[in-house]
Design a protein around this nucleic acid. Structure first.
Length: 184
DNA sequence: GTACAGATTGAG
DNA sequence: TCAATCTGTACT
């Protein structure tokens, strides 16, 4: 995928990522999966974002990079969370990849954000990696892009702490009826 | 230096 | 319903 794809508005990128193929080269092998579920986190105003009110720390600085870079971090002491930065440099926006449908070489579950990172052998060494230039992880166009009618919008998962408004805003997207979406 | 909570998961 | 497990961040 080109840089221009990732620099579009975050909500648009979150929806257009559905159906794209995420490719990861691991020990010379191709691991690939179709993205079936995403969530948008939109910078300073989003109370659920790590960059709420523009907060910038060593941990979340990748959120501020120009679209197409990897923001990866550890939650609950054991699960990695894969995000792609979006929009322009300095804008703290990103899309969380929540679930994949396995296509090639994947032998572990990928129906959750922590699980997909385990299946694709992703960790902090990917922090800040450029998806447009990396030789070990990138995105390819899927064969068919889901029609708008096949995309479901709902509230994001696991962010109740953000309060009644931000925890309910419908910034989670997934492919309708897909068996690999998390929280069946 | 110490305390604390989290964009999850799988077991009971 | 609940514990595992650890890092970034805030506070003393």
């Amino acid at each position: 995928m080109e840089r221009e794809f990732f620099t579009q508005p975050t909500l648009k990128v979150a929806q257009q990522l559905l159906g794209k193929t995420l490719v990861r080269i691991w020990r010379g092998k191709r691991l690939a999966g179709k993205i079936v579920e995403t969530e948008a986190y939109i910078g300073p105003k989003d109370k659920a974002s790590h960059a709420y009110l523009g907060k910038k720390t060593p941990r979340n600085r990748a959120e501020f990079m120009v679209g197409g870079h990897i923001y990866i971090y550890l939650v609950y002491g054991m699960y990695w969370q894969l995000n792609f930065s979006t929009e322009t440099k300095g804008r703290p926006t990103c899309v969380l990849i929540r679930a994949l449908e396995p296509l090639e070489g994947i032998n572990e579950p990928t129906n959750g954000p922590g699980k997909l990172c385990r299946a694709l052998k992703l960790n902090k060494s990917f922090y800040g990696e450029d998806l447009c230039r990396s030789s070990r992880i990138w995105l390819e166009n899927g064969l068919e892009i889901p029609q708008e009618a096949q995309i479901v919008r709902s509230a994001r998962i696991g962010i109740d702490y953000a309060g009644p408004y931000w925890s309910k805003i419908p910034w989670r997207f997934y492919i309708k009826g897909n068996n690999f979406v998390s929280k069946k």
